[in-house]
Design a protein around this nucleic acid. Structure first.
Lengths: 150, 150
DNA sequence: TATTGTTATACTCTATAACTATA
DNA sequence: TATAGTTATAGAGTATAACAATA
């Protein structure tokens, strides 16, 4: 029992690092660090202020200044004045930035799909079901509903 | 089918980041960065040279110098001359370093165990079986046998 | 007064290139 | 000559504290 439990923990940990390294590698192909990739990732469906970006990425606002500086210097994002608050700055993905993160994300998704390619349909379904259960109950413990009905 | 496949990929990716962040948080409790944690981790059952450390952590040897410098300054590792090669330096965990990495690893294992606590014995067994299958076949593709019989 | 963002500063982490000592 | 390790240097990434502009 204890041995079984340990090996589940171990398998999950190993697979997590494998998946993480896979993304890191695909991001590096686009000369993106993990944090730059996360920056572009959150900008795919948002146009946040520097402050909101700090909250989304869980970094200090002074760190966001440098992060956005470097991405902007590469032409991946743009700063725009907020129309409603003259103190605030809105950050937006450029076409180049969107292209880079889209390519990295697609290749990463392909890698994970390939990783699961050897599984039978039954095993894959079982994996999805169990992982979803873990994620939903973890989210619930954090007070988050992953599938809001409203 | 495509929707199912995507959601398996998504679930695996989400869970990977969750597990990774969990380790990062536990390491940070001991004031350890991820790379310092990996350094102490590989030293738990090895006493490698600087060069071997560079290979194990996939970093340049000049990066290892700084990494070990900082860990040594905190009293987490020690440098010792190699008895067989006067150019080489062996790196060894101190008791303090071992304590720190042991605590972080134990808490992390507890976190992952807790994450899986809501699963039935059946589900947990299914998860272990499927994840192991993925890991073994991935390792095989890399030419690695996870369970050498010799 | 409070908030938004930047700047100044300091530290970790990483790589490249040049170097020293030893093999 | 080749290898092991360090140093010098440069740049990304991060936080804290102080600041200017705006609310």
């Amino acid at each position: 029992m204890a041995a079984d439990e340990l090996s589940t923990v171990d398998a999950l940990a190993q697979l997590s690092f494998l998946v993480h390294n896979t993304l890191e590698r695909r991001a590096a192909e686009q000369e993106l660090s993990m944090i730059q990739t996360r920056l572009l990732g959150v900008l795919r469906d948002r146009e946040p202020t520097m402050n909101e970006l700090a909250a989304l990425l869980e970094l200090d606002k002074s760190s966001i200044t440098g992060l956005v500086d470097r991405a902007q210097r590469r032409g991946l994002v743009e700063r725009h004045p907020s129309p409603t608050d003259r103190r605030a700055v809105l950050v937006r993905l450029t076409a180049t930035g969107r292209e880079l993160v889209t390519v990295a994300a697609a290749r990463f998704a392909g890698d994970v799909t390939a990783l699961l390619a050897g599984l039978s349909a039954t095993d894959r379904a079982a994996l999805t079901r169990v992982l979803s259960r873990v994620l939903v109950s973890h989210a619930a413990e954090q007070g988050i509903d992953l599938f809001p009905t409203a």
